[in-house]
Write a protein that binds this DNA or RNA. Structure first.
Lengths: 252, 252
DNA sequence: AAGTTTATGTTAATTTTTCACACGGGAGAC
DNA sequence: GTCTCCCGTGTGAAAAATTAACATAAACTT
């Protein structure tokens, strides 16, 4: 099928760095050259590869020299984040009103999300940009000062902004979690923003890949009991899972 | 000479990100296509660029934030827009507070802009993303609903937002202009937003490439006399130029 | 089950690139 | 001084790769 083939192409390309169409044809002898071309075209649109004459090369291959903050961050624990994003994407129904934070996991979520008629609020401009490709999704960006490291915005004024809005679900992620400190992040204003979001959201979904466990960041914005659903990857420790389930929080 | 030409190609490519051979030929009209090809070939060997079908792209471009990159961008009147952007970029001084709209010309402006300590307000998320690469620029994004066609945000609430802010200069562009209707755009809320910006800006710079002349869009947001400086390209008709200069508006 | 969208294959047309060779002018040899 | 020998460059044909257009098959809707 298309989806899997494209993922496999991306994988191989990430591994080998660079490939010609001829080589790709050897790997996928069952499909035509044209189909592979189309796959490459799509991967290029998604920004995952670059098509060069004769074939394609992985973006990561080029990026290995890179020292840029955000790009680097996007490559940490990518696989886990995609898995989490896919799970979260399945939870968005037609017509719902969703808040999405500006993190990298949310970024993957916007890629995986089906193109349903719904309303999304976000404070991440990279997320907004990604979502802009969906025809049916109505996007609202929360304004404010832009933080360059994670490309998300926040401002104290955003609080008033939220007075007028309600969310069915808020899907957010934390950069750190411990049972004692709860979910924390690096920015005071972002923490404030999220707290306000939680007030107006009927349900809070937390996306947390297992690499965040045991870390502590300066600003706690939620305790365990503040969330309704925890979305995580397969490496999430059992004892932690218990912790959430004991409080009737769904872990998926 | 060869050496200098190659360096210049590398420079331009780093700035623009991506160029076709055709565009390169325009920049270097004295040498043949084959020579430029050979230059690109050498730059590729040095690992500074990547040759793609039809031209080449800067390695730095690839290292940028994923998603925004290498998608097919509209190449309408690119050259004129870059010229205008360069002129406008020169007008931004250290320490100033600037409003920038979300159009494609503003996008180029953010690329050309020097990395000065200054404050930029914008309603364009692509613009914000581009500016995020500058270390010294402080960026604030105006929130609101995202328009997918031009990736800019606007909301009626933004008016109140501006009550608290002042701009030294506002640099905006219009999608249409006639002497009678003035400067117009496609969106009611964007038009409102800009009107509010004008109220708070000490000086208004209008970027208008000559292809916009004679077109009319539904919402007029400024008349000729509302602006202070008009920045345009070399194809701007003399009789129109007169029109502005008669009103003491600088045309550059 | 009919209709509609989506994925794929096939072939021709177009575009881009490569290749091979020719030309000219400058550096050094005699 | 002038004769080579290269290096950088230009030219046009040949090869390669990409795109476009159409046809068909599969999957999904209603």
């Amino acid at each position: 099928m298309k989806r899997e083939r494209i993922e496999e192409i991306a994988d191989i390309l990430d591994k080998r760095g660079k490939m010609t169409l001829e080589q790709l044809e050897e790997v996928f002898p069952t499909v035509s050259q044209m189909t592979l071309r189309r796959d490459l075209f799509q991967l290029e649109e998604d920004g995952r590869i670059i098509r060069i004459r004769g074939g394609a090369m992985s973006v990561k291959e080029v990026q290995k020299v890179s020292g840029e903050a955000y790009t680097k961050k996007t490559t940490i624990n990518t696989d886990a984040k995609i898995v989490i994003a896919q799970k979260a994407a399945a939870l968005i129904d037609e017509g719902t009103c969703v808040f999405l934070d500006g993190g990298t996991t949310a970024m993957y979520l916007s890629k995986e999300m089906p193109d349903l008629k719904c309303n999304v609020f976000t404070n991440g401009i990279a997320v907004a940009m990604e979502l802009a490709q969906k025809k049916n999704v109505n996007i609202t960006v929360v304004g404010g000062q832009l933080m360059k490291d994670n490309l998300s915005t926040s401002s104290p004024a955003a609080k008033e902004y939220f007075d007028l809005t309600n969310f069915e679900i808020a899907i957010v992620s934390a950069t750190a979690f411990t049972p004692e400190q709860g979910f924390s992040c690096n920015s005071q204003i972002e923490s404030d923003l999220l707290k306000n979001v939680f007030k107006k959201a009927r349900q809070v979904y937390m996306m947390l890949d297992s690499s965040k466990i045991g870390k502590i960041n300066p600003y706690t914005f939620a305790k365990i009991e503040d969330i309704d659903v925890l979305i995580t990857d397969d490496h999430f420790p059992k004892e932690y899972k218990q912790l959430f389930e004991n409080r009737n929080i769904v872990v998926m």
